[in-house]
Amino acid sequence: MRIVLDAELCQGHGRCYSLAPDLFDSDDVGHCVLLVDAVPDGREADARSGAENCPEHALTLED
């Protein structure tokens, strides 16, 4: 599973990196930075949580 970030859509709500800080981080303005490309085994639920909590639909998961 991969995480794909659409940086154009991210508005810095910060939901992803507060829910899964080892998968997502914030840059200096508070926008999302991906810490992983491929989701580590066993972390699918957290990746999904980060993506699904984004109010802007900036994060998607690809199999």
């Binding site: 709500h13 699904e52 802007e56």
Partner: peptide, 20 residues
């Protein structure tokens, strides 16, 4: 609740500056 992608702080470019 999870997921909870609410819009209480608005959204788009005007997302509440002070939300954090």
């Amino acid at each position: 609740r999870n997921p909870n992608p609410h819009l209480a702080f608005g959204g788009g470019v005007h997302r509440c500056l002070g939300s954090h």
